[in-house]
């Protein structure tokens, strides 16, 4: 700014340099603005500190190896208590797997339809409607997962073969919840594939279907990967749907008909159970929370890196 012109030392420009576009009082405003921006940095530090401080307390009681040992159950209710986190991770992976099995084909189909088939006016109308699915409070989906999907559909359909609380009912509603994420992020990726490539394919006598699947889809694949990672991060972090409908029995299984417990489900259970501060139950909340935070953080960062690479490839 004004400091660039340091060789000039005439009075006027010296004065201007002293007060570059600023009045008394504005320095205070500047400080306030910087403080505002600092809040988000402080939040990150606070999250990391809070999670890891108490997680360290947990690992004083329970060894790291015990926590990550496949052979151990997650059994915190009665002695001998055992904190093998893989059962909770398995629950999270379980709902992630099945919700993606449902949401991926539908979400990508929607993205392809909106990007390659829909008339601009249809798209303007359909996209906000689809995005409304992401705006529905998750407790509403939780209620539907339990009362509608599980009670009214899955139980009559499978009877004894499925438990009342099951991973599938939660996965169905999780899939509905993340549909717009997959559809809209993938659609953005496909829309940024250059028009040239579509024209080249059409010029060679490709049909719309072939252009969409053989040219646009492969060209947008990294953006689509980012969409999938973001969707997975959302599923992993979602709490209400799994806490209500998937059950509360830690279970090392990937079957959709069984009752399970996810990491978030366990955390909510501890919060409802009024665990006393300092107990292993209480600190286990932070250990699981820290693991959850690391997982979602890694997914989000990976998605951002992929998106940035993808943008560079087409700029």
């Amino acid at each position: 700014m004004a400091l660039a012109n340091t060789t000039d030392s005439t009075g006027l420009s010296h004065q201007m340099r002293k007060r570059p576009f600023r009045r008394p009082g504005e320095n205070l405003i500047m400080v306030a603005l910087v403080l505002c921006a600092a809040v988000s940095i402080a939040t990150t530090f606070a999250i990391v500190f809070v999670l890891f401080a108490d997680a360290i307390g947990f690992f004083r009681e329970v060894s790291f190896w015990h926590f990550f040992n496949f052979a151990n159950d997650w059994q915190t209710l009665f002695d001998p208590r055992s904190f093998g986190v893989w059962e909770l991770v398995a629950g999270t992976v379980n709902v992630t797997l099945w919700s993606m099995v449902i949401a991926l084909p539908l979400g990508l189909a929607a993205a392809i339809y909106l990007s390659e088939y829909a008339h601009p006016q249809t798209r303007r109308f359909l996209k906000p409607l689809l995005e409304l699915l992401a705006g529905v409070p998750t407790v509403v989906y939780a209620y539907f997962a339990l009362t509608f999907i599980s009670d009214d559909i899955l139980l009559p359909l499978f009877g004894e073969n499925i438990s009342f609380f099951n991973s599938l009912s939660a996965s169905v509603m999780l899939a509905v919840m993340i549909l717009p994420t997959i559809a809209s992020v993938s659609e953005d990726a496909m829309a940024s594939v250059p028009r040239d490539l579509r024209e080249a394919a059409y010029g060679l006598g490709a049909t719309r279907l072939e252009v969409a699947f053989r040219v646009v889809f492969p060209a947008a694949i990294s953006g689509i990967m980012a969409a999938i990672l973001l969707a997975i991060a959302r599923v992993i972090g979602e709490t209400m749907i799994v806490a209500v409908a998937a059950g509360s029995t830690p279970n090392l299984t990937l079957w959709p008909h069984e009752s399970i417990q996810t990491m978030t489900g366990y955390m909510l259970q501890v919060a409802l159970g009024d665990a006393a501060r300092g107990t292993t139950d209480y600190t286990s909340l932070f250990a699981v929370g820290a693991l959850l935070f690391v997982m979602t953080f890694a997914l989000n960062v990976a998605a951002q890196i992929i998106v940035r690479r993808f943008r560079e490839a087409y700029e």
């Binding site: 939040t43 606070a46 955390m267 959850l292 935070f293 979602t296």
Partner: peptide
Amino acid sequence: NIANLAGVPSIIYGIL
């Protein structure tokens, strides 16, 4: 930092 905070699950904010 802000982009990453946007992806932090709400339950983590609850713990905070």
